[in-house]
Design a protein around this nucleic acid. Structure first.
Lengths: 343, 343
DNA sequence: CATGCTTCTGTGAGCGTTCACAGTAGAGAA
DNA sequence: TTCTCTACTGTGAACGCTCACAGAAGCATG
């Protein structure tokens, strides 16, 4: 009966088959496929029914060969991969980008640049024009891949403000500084006056900005900044724990801690618990990221949510615009304070 | 100075440029590119230096146009996406597949079939031959996308035993039954005799197999199976909690619980704690998956680790073999018992 | 009636590669 | 020498599409 369903794949219909079926020329079919300008309604109709009837799908390879576009974009992760792949926000980002691109019928190629070998291969792949643009996840300062892509003129949109790439590269980021400001203001509003901070790594824009927000709000409140209340971490849980211990040793009267990531905040909670401080009664704790760690913690963490769904949508929007010839752009999106038990 | 670095992308060199540079014909360059058979060492050498000198990278579109292959594969997720995207094992799988493919210079296209619209688009994209094969993640029984792809003769490898797809589709899975057997044997070895089980959904192979392993071991030990000790869940944390409560009500003398997922096991721990049972003193608890939930739990969960890194590698291996013309194959990989505090 | 303009349509060329085929050169055998 | 065989090389055609161009048809304007 249905021989078509058994065994190998059949040769798909070409634009030629559609043209014959519709009684028009290749050119007309092509025009219908690409926007339908300069096509009579009758011809367009005939072509569309022929497309449905034959089950025609454009051969992207043939199209790309002549247009020079690939109609696909790469999602490049040059971050040490373990860290980001375990971050649920990364999942949201990846999923969001894939879906936003799918709406434009653009496939997403996942590229992981872990080893130097992979880095080389991917760079060559991209610069050879096999993708039209790249969505970049990399907080690596002075990332050689990113630099090379930028130099080659590949449309590029980074997630988060990239370091050392000049102003020529687009990026989409959450407003770290403003998020930090919100949190510190929140702690002040609760009546806390000895507010400590466990920063992120200060060689990343995120780390710097979040600390800057902390300083700004305290200054604006007319408070003098006590450098003993500032300790730095590296976003890891362990560094949060160590940071809190240093903080307690240096300033035992601390009554609130703004922690630059939820994971570190978990460590801070552990250290505070061990030191016999009650949260939030003795010390209020604010995190950053609104990761699952925030709700898994006890008490559940008050934190700053980054709009990851909007970030992915904006990254795709900016990238497509740039592929379309527009200039690089920076987009900063607002964060949101999520109040829970820890403050 | 370096005009090449400013502005747009330059036109990349073609096989023609390489041929001219090397003083040979297109055909010879092509032969070097594809295995180098029937090429004199001198010519091969000349071509290779010309490739390096010109920075030539093959134009995959042109190649695909004539070979009919795309030299790319799709990673298709038809699962309700939230669930899998939050599963860290999914990350390991996705990363593993990407890297295994990268070793063969094959890009991975991420495809998420959430809505019906996406489903249609993706099906058409794949059956049109835009990917050579598909890595499928779907526990959805009777998945229409998978069925359509199978019918169209698209090489397909599923992660986990697929339901209702006949025997014609390859899959790679962990040995659920054997994993369950290991865990129950472990509980028996600890001297437990009233071993309950919270199963996974029994319309999935995983759920069925894990329960089967439980039954087998108890039967082999000459014990009679008490159906009151068997309650079913749906892998969610909440269902674990509810399951444990039912178990305690029906068989208060239970001294161990084998739970078919770590997430459910967390729920079980919560319920046991609330009921005043100590773990593992009063009741030993064994999970399944070795997800981060296992170490996040207190006490840390004894669990069954699925070899996700090997699963991804095998999926890619089987898919490439199938693309190469081999018959579909099923691969079952062994699991590993990870002992922690809960038993 | 010619002229121009707009809207529409068909045609040939070409994108960069692989593949089949025809050919060349050199070695060894008759 | 001549033939055959092997190892290698070059060439034209094709893959399926888009693009530029030429031309046709319709309509208003001079």
């Amino acid at each position: 009966m249905t021989m078509s369903n058994t065994g190998g794949r059949r040769k798909p219909p070409t634009i030629h088959d559609v043209a014959r079926e519709a009684g028009v020329s290749r050119g007309t079919v092509s025009r219908v496929l690409n926007g339908g300008h300069y096509v009579s309604p009758a011809a367009a109709e005939a072509v569309n029914t022929a497309i449905r009837k034959t089950g025609y799908v454009v051969n992207r390879h043939a199209r790309s060969l002549i247009t020079g576009r690939s109609d696909s974009v790469g999602f490049l992760l040059t971050e040490p991969q373990e860290r980001f792949f375990e971050d649920p926000n990364f999942n949201v980002l990846l999923r969001g980008c894939t879906q936003a691109l799918a709406a434009h019928d653009i496939p997403l190629l996942l590229m992981l640049a872990g080893t130097d070998d992979e880095r080389r291969r991917i760079t060559r792949y991209i610069t050879a024009g096999h993708v039209d643009g790249v969505l970049l996840v990399s907080s690596h300062s002075g990332d050689p891949v990113a630099e090379e892509l930028r130099a080659a003129g590949v449309p590029l949109v980074a997630c988060g403000k990239p370091i050392g790439l000049g102003s020529k590269v687009s990026y989409v980021a959450a407003d770290d500084r403003d998020g930090a400001r919100d949190m510190v203001r929140h702690l002040l509003a609760l009546g806390r006056r000895r507010i400590g901070v466990v920063t992120g790594p200060l060689d990343t824009p995120g780390g710097v900005e979040r600390l800057a927000g902390y300083r700004e709000v305290l200054s604006e409140a007319g408070m003098e900044i006590d450098e003993r209340l500032i300790v730095s971490g590296d976003y890891s849980r362990a560094s949060g724990e160590a940071g809190a211990e240093r903080l307690l040793a240096r300033a035992p009267d601390v009554d609130a801690v703004f922690v630059a990531s939820d994971l570190m905040a978990q460590g801070v909670l552990t250290a505070l618990h061990r030191a016999g401080r009650r949260v939030p009664d003795d010390v209020a704790v604010g995190g950053f990221d609104d990761s699952p760690a925030a709700v898994a913690a006890s008490p559940e963490l008050t934190t700053i949510r980054q709009p990851w769904d909007r970030i992915s949508a904006e990254m795709v929007r900016v990238l497509l615009a740039q592929i379309g010839g527009e200039d690089p752009a920076a987009v900063i999106l607002p964060t949101e304070l999520v109040k829970r038990e820890s403050t």
